[in-house]
Write a protein that binds this DNA or RNA. Structure first.
Length: 586
DNA sequence: GCCGTTTTCGGCCCGACTGTTTTCAGTCG
């Protein structure tokens, strides 16, 4: 039983309770518990089975929910869930996924028209049976038909890297409206989440109508969904939704804070304000009716006794407590990066030559770059065997003589094979400056086998880092399952690095796993895995990920000069001799 | 359902917009 499954059961319970108009605070407790479980960073099942640990030590988990988690882990099911599900037809929950349809209306539709699936909903809407219901009308019925048609395109989150394109275009466009002051894209985009559901733009502007008209004139806008006095919502042609909030200048910081979220962070902040006899809303921080802060975010946080918290940390995962301490991390910045340690060339599946990649790295101001083409197993990419690899390294030596401004590391992305062995012998690896070991094949193996493969690689002293450690592709493939704790423990003991892969569709490890690894003493490398000159620019996405995990400059080796991590070069770090795993193949 | 040196009971974040009403419920973020 993995954490996402536990979280999913609690989410379902919350939905079912909501449909049955249960106590909203009880519903919130289940949603909170789902969040807590998702954010754990280790298997909830492991905590359940550890006699020294208690689930109800976690905030939001009390005796009751701890018992329910135990039940799910032990039996794979939650009796409460099945009891609730028995009272609600199975398809009814799907109705909640439609924008504008919540639990109240869904249950009205069911009670009055017997609607219990999206298909039945569509038929009822098309035969105009919905508008006759009390509380529904012509417009609601049309809206349902429309959102059913759009269901496939909307609700889909896009990669942060894609959202950035629209965020920047919209920002530039809106600045063209007269009277626009401060302007910022808030929401999950500002928190730099892996994926973004919509864009929330906060603008300080004297003339609301001017900036709203300006948004409506953006050429990618397909439709205006809502248009009020301070708020406007549009849908772009791609399906991406954009919310615009216009606030007075004195409220900009409060609005930005509020619309940046996350929801859980905002709730925590407001509760804290309450404790101090204050009220926080998007217009400011108020004592009674008097505004005591709101113009800037710094002011807002200061008013409730906290330093400013970077948006990337605002998930209510302990950042408020760190701010209070005050022990907020000094997050790593893009400009801290001194080199890229995972780069491909046309020698395998890259799209730019060795020389072009090196020159591009030099232009970025890097002091080193590692060329890490695929090893022979990756036949699709014409992976290199020992002979071809040594040929490439000779060319690197010649190139290095012509480019004294940058150190070129002779590396390889070494495949961790299905049987747990490595794709090249130690005799070759020991000649390499830099080895990134990755899994590409046998991703469907059992967690036990994958774990052993990763441990084998980690225990080889020539392996400097594990590349894209989970193999996930966001929105496409979940990534292979393995024992994160065992792998992180071994990585910490041996000094083997965990890569944070900056490809926007990869971004593994995720921020929860990174934070967990850091706790265990693991060090990281942020690499682009670039297959072209342009992809060297992906570094930003990897840094986003590192920042959300709370990493500082010194947690990441490629913020340092090469000499600082020289023991990782040429496999000079000590091999782990203790375990029997090192010689075992799987 | 959780939580607590003001509380073991009685709180639990807060406002905007829409569509439907004729003063507000439902939904959303």
């Amino acid at each position: 039983m993995e954490n996402p499954q536990v979280a999913q059961i609690f989410e379902e319970v919350a939905d079912l309770l909501e449909i049955q108009s249960e106590n909203p605070f009880r519903i919130r407790a289940y949603r909170r518990a789902a969040q807590v479980v998702s954010d754990l960073g280790e298997r909830v099942a492991d905590i359940v089975h550890d006699p020294d640990r208690r689930l109800d030590d976690y905030p939001g988990i009390g005796k009751d929910l701890a018992g329910k988690i135990r039940e799910i882990v032990d039996t794979g099911e939650l009796s409460l869930r099945s009891e609730l599900a028995a009272k609600v037809p199975p398809g009814l929950r799907a109705l909640l996924s439609l924008p504008g349809l919540g639990p109240k209306r869904a249950s009205t539709l069911y009670k009055n028209l017997g609607i219990a699936s999206l298909d039945e909903l569509r038929k009822a809407a098309e035969s105009h049976r919905i508008k006759a219901l009390k509380g529904f009308g012509e417009k609601t019925e049309q809206a349902i038909i429309k959102s059913l048609q759009q269901l496939k395109q909307t609700g889909k989150r896009i990669l942060w890297s894609e959202a950035k394109v629209y965020a920047e275009a919209l920002t530039n466009h809106l600045r063209g409206a007269s009277g626009v002051g401060q302007l910022e894209v808030a929401g999950s985009y500002r928190r730099r989440k892996e994926t973004v559901g919509d864009l929330d733009i906060v603008v300080a502007c004297k003339s609301t109508s001017q900036v709203m008209d300006r948004l409506a004139s953006f050429e990618e806008v397909a439709e205006v969904l809502a248009h009020g006095g301070t708020r406007m919502t549009v849908r772009l042609k791609t399906g991406l939704q954009v919310d615009l909030r216009v606030v007075p200048d004195v409220s900009f910081g409060a609005a930005l804070q509020y619309f940046t979220g996350s929801k859980a962070h905002s709730i925590h902040i407001r509760r804290r304000a309450q404790d101090r006899g204050l009220k926080v809303n998007e217009y400011g921080v108020f004592r009674g009716s008097r505004r005591i802060a709101g113009k800037t975010e710094v002011e807002v946080y200061r008013a409730i006794g906290l330093p400013w918290i970077p948006p990337e940390l605002r998930e209510d995962r302990g950042e408020v407590e760190l701010a209070e301490a005050p022990q907020l991390p000094d997050l790593v910045r893009p400009e801290d990066i001194k080199g890229d340690l995972h780069v491909h060339t046309t020698d395998t599946d890259g799209r730019a030559s060795l020389e072009d990649m090196v020159l591009a790295a030099k232009r970025r101001g890097y002091s080193y770059v590692a060329i890490t083409d695929h090893s022979r197993r990756v036949t699709m990419a014409r992976g290199l065997d020992a002979r071809l690899l040594r040929q490439q390294w000779k060319r690197i030596d010649r190139l290095a003589k012509r480019n004294p401004g940058i150190t070129i590391l002779k590396g390889v992305e070494l495949d961790i094979l299905e049987d747990g062995s490595l794709d090249l012998p130690d005799s070759v690896l020991q000649e390499a400056d830099w080895v990134v070991a990755s899994i590409h094949y046998g991703q469907n193996q059992s967690p036990e086998r994958i774990t052993r493969r990763l441990l084998n690689a980690i225990e080889n002293p020539h392996v400097a880092a594990i590349g894209h450690p989970t193999g996930r592709l966001i929105g496409k493939r979940p990534g292979y399952q393995f024992d994160l704790q065992a792998v992180f423990t071994a990585a910490a003991e041996t000094g083997c690095l965990m890569e944070i892969n900056a490809q926007p569709v990869r971004l593994d490890l995720d921020e929860v796993a990174i934070a967990e690894a850091k706790k265990k003493g693991v060090q990281f490398v942020v690499s682009t895995d670039a297959h072209s000159v342009e992809e060297l620019g992906f570094m930003e996405f990897g840094i986003n990920q590192a920042r959300r995990a709370g990493l500082e400059k010194l947690d990441i080796v490629n913020t340092r000069p090469l000499q600082a991590f020289r023991k990782l070069l040429r496999g000079a770090r000590p091999a782990k001799r203790s375990g029997s795993m090192a010689k075992v193949t799987v």
